[in-house]
Design a protein around this nucleic acid. Structure first.
Lengths: 208, 208
DNA sequence: TGTGCGTGCAAGTGCGTACTTGCATTGCAA
DNA sequence: TTGCAATGCAAGTACGCACTTGCACGCACA
């Protein structure tokens, strides 16, 4: 605890206000991922960020505002559209590439996604909207990809269903790696697992 | 709030201690599903249960003990093995039946599962163990089913991978219904969605 | 050289919450 | 009827947490 505490205390004074704000946001995200919105105390966030507790309130005003800032700061829209729009090759390899991009992004935001699954005190909370919107954006992009491949008769079915299903594979994989870390599914690395999913998926929904 | 409050206050006095305990456990589960472990206060639990706050502590001692009791009480092992062991017919229909049973059970425990996804303050917490164990049991039973069908050359691949994948469909379906309630995936009812998943799954992993 | 902004520090305030306690009440069973 | 076990009720305690405040310090920039 002590070594983690005041991780960057020495650099605190010499840092710019933007860096300070940045460190607070990161620390808040880290602790809230562990202990949830209510379990994260401003004291601990300040300790991990290496700043004084008062500084948090000077920057954000209230803890609630800090939480909103964290959600907005780390839930940026994902630049997946560029990846998807350039995929015109062999469908297996394209899906693999798409899957890799989705996997990477979902893993880096898994803590935020987990929040959004649980924080339902208010249906229209910052989590239900901000934290989940990127996933909706992913779904849309993947749906467009599926749509194009359906038009080419490479796939059959409803593009949105296919997109949801494909995203489900990735989502489950990320979740399962936390919960079943020793599962055979994850041996051989992410690419092997992705290939397995895509194999099943394509056999199931291939057009011709 | 007021009408929800003291929902069963009149019947409280005439109830047996077991019924009182039962009502407290149910109320605790309900509120913790909404607000999480830390967000649920003993006051509100007592109100919803229609008992006095002191009664909670007379029954369970501490809030922590109440939480453990809730996890143990509602995370009983699922009697899925009987269902699975009797499935010797056509594989599509059998998977549908299995899927129905899994869906029903996972939906009824979704709040507990969501807890276990988030409460990771302690890796070996009551949630990581108690709340997740039933899912491991499901996985095992489904794996045995897959194993039998692989032996019959009806399926190909690794039984555990197949089981995990199949459970992933169900899991995602339950999750998605909360988060994408208007999705086309859920139109036509659970059975239609299940048939779609099973269709893809079987095409992907069928043996012959 | 000085002026101001960002921060550390320490003390403090108020509120919500877990938990306790003593006593009155009620229902059931010997 | 009497006694006991379970509960209601009201008041209270202790503590943690969000949030505030006043002051001192130091770095940047004029």
């Amino acid at each position: 605890m002590i070594e983690a505490t005041r991780r960057a205390a020495d650099s605190a004074k010499s840092a710019s206000p933007e860096e300070t704000r940045e460190r607070i946001l990161s620390a808040a995200r880290e602790i809230m991922a562990k202990k949830g919105k209510r379990g994260a105390t401003t004291r601990e966030i300040a300790d991990v960020a290496g700043v004084n507790e008062a500084t948090i309130f000077r920057h954000f005003g209230t803890k609630e505002a800090l939480i909103v800032a964290v959600a907005q700061h780390f839930c940026g829209f994902l630049a997946l559209r560029e990846v998807a729009s350039q995929l015109h090759g062999e469908i297996t390899e394209n899906l693999l590439e798409l899957g890799r991009a989705m996997l990477e992004r979902m893993e880096s935001q898994m803590d935020m996604i987990r929040w959004s699954l649980v924080e339902q005190e208010y249906e229209a909370s910052i989590f239900a909207t901000t934290a989940w919107r990127p996933q909706l954006a992913i779904l849309e992009v993947v749906g467009e990809f599926m749509q194009r491949r359906i038009a080419l008769s490479e796939l059959r079915g409803d593009p949105k269903k296919l997109a949801m299903m494909f995203m489900g594979f990735i989502f489950m994989h990320v979740l399962a790696r936390k919960k079943f870390p020793d599962s055979e599914l994850h041996q051989g690395g992410a690419d092997a697992a992705l290939r397995f999913y895509i194999d099943v998926f394509l056999n199931g929904v291939r057009g011709k």
